[in-house]
Computed example of a mutant assay.
Amino acid sequence: MQNLIQIILSTPWLLWPALVGVSLCVGSFLNVVILRLPRMMEQAWRQECEALLEHDRRSEPAHETSNTGNASTDNDREQARFYGLSYPRSHCPECGNTIRAIDNIPVISWLLLRGRCRHCGTGISARYPVIEALTAVLSVLTVLILGANAEALVTLPLVWALVALTAIDLDTTLLPDSITLPLLWAGLVVSALGLGQVGLEAAFWGAVAGYLSLWSVYHLFRLLTGKEGMGHGDFKLLGALGSWLGWTMLPAIILLSSLVGAVVGIAMIAIRGHDRNIPIPFGPYLAAAGVIALWYGPELLDLWLSMMRV
């Protein structure tokens, strides 16, 4: 396998088509994650709440318990609604027909079908091919900028995870632990194996400093205002970025993400009349800053050090 990877890396006419094809397929899978993971989380929360309510009902006296006969029916309905990343198969939400493999080719199938379901003609969101194409573009740019080497390939899962987290955060203002925490540990493992951008020590302190920096800001803001200024997922995402890129990249990531977030937030309030009490997801700005730091880490570090000397 290692020899095969080296052959592909050293053969441009194999590398770039393979990279585009694989990343398009990954983008297609990311669409599934973006759509279903939040619903799976909601489903798990609902089941936990129902289990707690059922426990409370059983602890009540018999004459105060009601609707117990419907418990099995409710459970059956919930089981019928159960789904995961692989089940049920992709289908049209309007007519329910399963999407065939020929109609599920990333980007190409959407273009050939003109963005509509083959069976009922219902429009299919352009977001699906956009996510697939964006994943491919970011993957190609990563290898172009970092070089055609094993280290660049190892960082691709980081880029892919950031695409999924960005879309989920924009949709739900959630950064799922099932992505951020494995991403943090993966950065440490990659660094320990000597395949990452930084060594294990820098990765370890990057994870610690990344998490604690935003954790401290969160609690300080809450003590001063009585409000929550950000979600807990932001701590974990910055910790994950620190584990991949090292603690020296954290100031640049925080500065870039805060600057872009402030500009976008002010623009939304001024132009669109966005209610300032409605939270604006911070995860997409952290993700974008993380990708920029991955690509241009040394240049950003030099810029940061020169600013500090001034």
Results as ranks from 00 to 15, higher is better:
2 Q>M: 14
17 P>G: 03
20 V>P: 01
24 L>T: 00
27 G>N: 03
28 S>F: 09
30 L>V: 04
35 L>Y: 13
37 L>F: 01
43 Q>M: 13
47 Q>N: 13
50 E>K: 12
52 L>P: 04
52 L>W: 15
53 L>T: 05
53 L>A: 12
56 D>G: 10
58 R>T: 07
58 R>K: 13
63 H>G: 08
69 G>L: 14
72 S>P: 09
72 S>A: 14
74 D>C: 12
74 D>W: 12
81 R>H: 10
81 R>N: 13
82 F>E: 14
85 L>T: 06
89 R>Y: 07
89 R>A: 13
94 E>G: 06
102 I>S: 12
105 I>M: 01
106 P>A: 07
112 L>I: 10
112 L>G: 00
115 G>F: 01
117 C>M: 08
121 G>A: 05
122 T>A: 11
130 V>H: 01
130 V>W: 06
137 V>P: 01
145 I>E: 04
147 G>F: 06
148 A>S: 12
151 E>Y: 12
154 V>I: 15
164 A>T: 01
165 L>T: 00
168 I>K: 00
171 D>T: 02
174 L>P: 04
182 P>Q: 00
184 L>S: 03
184 L>G: 01
186 A>Y: 08
189 V>D: 06
189 V>E: 08
195 L>P: 09
212 L>M: 10
218 Y>M: 13
229 G>A: 15
233 G>N: 05
240 A>I: 06
242 G>P: 07
243 S>H: 04
246 G>R: 05
247 W>F: 10
248 T>G: 06
251 P>R: 07
251 P>Q: 08
254 I>A: 08
264 V>I: 11
269 I>W: 00
275 D>Y: 02
281 P>G: 00
287 A>Y: 00
287 A>Q: 00
291 V>G: 01
292 I>M: 09
296 Y>Q: 13
297 G>I: 11
306 S>Q: 15
310 V>K: 11
